[in-house]
């Protein structure tokens, strides 16, 4: 009986490992093709690279003479800038807003909370044309600053939701003690509340950071052709330029994905908690 069970279990493990290998094969394929010359990639697409060829990375990274569009170097900088500043703005505005909505016991606070929740389901497509016209009128199309402001509004609902629900469950004792000592509300927010909400801040940074880093729909509308594009748009342009020269394209894919993968490796706990947060 026990031996049968052990056998069944090992058989299950073998099947699972086999499935995992098939599942991970595309990931292996892009990294290995990025490291092969075009000739080697065509001749032996599945084999391990015979040597570590860096030419594809150089081609994807540098500005090509024919089109300034399909180079990843400036896009990498733009993605870093927009993601970093966007996330900081989301954390500060989301925590401040969530703090009011959690602590004020009034109908207005409940109503505002629901107003933010509605934004969780409204598709971005509904307002995209009026938003584009508004941004163009304000001179914000084609600029990193415009993208940062758009993300701060677009991703406010989830951020506000996370901070508000978390702060509601926090006791008010520390805040009251600090207020009795004469601290201003802003000081209490910064010195008392912000350290207490660190778990939410970690979730917001990871989840919204990955969202902004990977987003395509917003930058393809607001940045395409501006020379200020982010990595997903640059990859899209790269495919247009190199067609089926997969070496440079996959080198670009590796470059664009490396930061998110690094976050995953070093902050795995926060990533898993962020993704499974829907049910706690």
């Amino acid at each position: 009986m026990t031996r049968n069970l052990n056998f069944a279990r090992s058989f299950g493990q073998i099947c699972l490992t086999g499935f995992a290998a098939v599942y991970a094969f595309p990931l292996y394929l892009i990294v290995s093709l990025a490291l092969k010359t075009e000739a080697e990639g065509a001749r032996a697409p599945f084999a391990l690279p015979s040597s570590l060829f860096s030419g594809n990375f150089a081609r994807a990274w540098q500005t090509s003479a024919t089109s300034g569009n399909a180079s990843l170097a400036p896009a990498f900088g733009n993605s870093i800038l927009i993601t970093a500043v966007g996330v900081v703005l989301l954390v500060v505005t989301g925590a401040l807003g969530g703090y009011v909505l959690a602590r004020r016991k009034s109908r207005l606070a409940d109503w505002l909370f629901v107003l933010f929740l509605i934004g969780l389901t409204v598709p971005q497509q509904l307002g995209i044309v009026p938003l584009f016209q508004l941004a163009r009128g304000l001179g914000l199309v084609g600029s990193a600053g415009g993208m940062i402001l758009i993300y701060a509004g677009l991703l406010a609902p989830l951020t506000i939701f996370l901070y508000t629900t978390f702060i509601r469950a926090l006791p008010t004792d520390y805040e009251e003690a600090a207020l009795m000592d004469g601290a201003s509300r802003l000081r209490v927010f910064w010195d008392v509340v912000m350290p207490l909400v660190r778990p939410v801040t970690a979730t917001v940074v990871v989840i919204q950071g990955i969202h902004i880093w990977n987003d395509f729909f917003t930058p393809v509308i607001f940045l395409l052709g501006s020379g200020q594009q982010t990595l997903p748009v640059a990859i899209f342009s790269l495919v247009g330029e190199y067609a089926t020269a997969w070496g440079p394209i996959f080198a670009g894919v590796v470059i664009a994905s490396a930061p998110a993968m690094a976050v995953f490796v070093f902050l795995q706990r926060h990533v898993v908690r962020g993704f499974s947060g829907g049910i706690k």
Partner: peptide, 12 residues
């Protein structure tokens, strides 16, 4: 956050 949300999501 309300102002940005209003300009980027609600009004459009």
């Amino acid at each position: 956050p309300l102002g940005l949300y209003g300009l980027v999501v609600i009004y459009p």
